[in-house]
Amino acid sequence: MLNNVKRLPDILSIFGVSRSHVYQQVKDGLFIKPIKLGKRAVGWPSNEISTLLSARIAGQSNEQIKSLVSTLEASRGQS
């Protein structure tokens, strides 16, 4: 399956939040960590973004989101 990578401007547009909010959510375990694309570039796998967005829309609690984030990050590279 082809997986696209979303860069920060895409993430900000999709979630409607600020850059600092995204990185605070990453720090708090409520948003997936970005993957390195190069020396000074990061991005987020689009399938993980879709899964996280669906969970938010479904109204999952912060604890459920933290668990989902952990699962998504743990499954990277296992396919």
Rank of each mutant, 00 (worst) to 15 (best):
S13P: 02
S13L: 11
V17W: 07
V26F: 14
R7S: 03
D28F: 07
R19Q: 10
S13N: 11
R19L: 03
K27N: 10
V5C: 06
P34Y: 01
R56E: 06
A41I: 14
G29A: 06
S46T: 12
Y23F: 15
H21I: 03
R40T: 15
V17S: 02
R19S: 02
S50C: 03
P34T: 00
G29N: 04
V42D: 04
L8A: 08
K27I: 01
Q24L: 12
N47G: 01
S54Q: 14
A55H: 10
N47Y: 08
S50E: 14
D10I: 09
Y23L: 05
A55W: 10
A55E: 08
K33D: 11
S13A: 10
V5N: 06
D28N: 15
R56A: 01
K27W: 09
N4M: 04
I35Q: 09
V17R: 03
T51L: 12
H21D: 07
K27E: 14
V17I: 14
L52K: 04
R7A: 05
K36G: 05
A41Q: 13
H21G: 04
A41V: 13
G59Y: 14
L8C: 05
D10W: 11
F15D: 08
L12R: 01
S18M: 08
A58E: 15
Y23P: 01
V5P: 03
W44Y: 10
L53I: 00
G59F: 14
Q25H: 11
K33H: 13
T51C: 06
K33N: 07
I57Q: 12
D10F: 09
L8R: 06
D28R: 12
V26M: 09
I32W: 12
G43Y: 09
H21M: 13
G43E: 07
R56F: 00
K39S: 10
F15G: 03
K36F: 08
D28G: 04
K27V: 00
K33C: 05
L53E: 13
W44D: 07
Q25W: 11
S18K: 07
N47Q: 11
G38V: 08
G29K: 03
L8P: 03
I49T: 05
A55Y: 10
V22F: 11
R56N: 05
S46N: 13
S54C: 06
K6P: 00
L30R: 03
D28A: 15
R7T: 07
I11H: 00
F15S: 08
G16E: 05
S54F: 02
I49M: 06
Q24G: 03
R7K: 15
V42K: 11
V22T: 06
G16Y: 08
F15T: 02
N4D: 01
F31R: 02
V26T: 04
A41R: 14
L8T: 07
R19T: 06
N4R: 11
G59S: 13
S20G: 02
K33W: 09
I35L: 15
T51P: 00
F31V: 00
L37H: 07
A58I: 01
L8S: 05
E48K: 14
Q60S: 04
S18V: 04
L37G: 06
G16I: 04
N47V: 01
S54A: 14
G29H: 07
K36E: 06
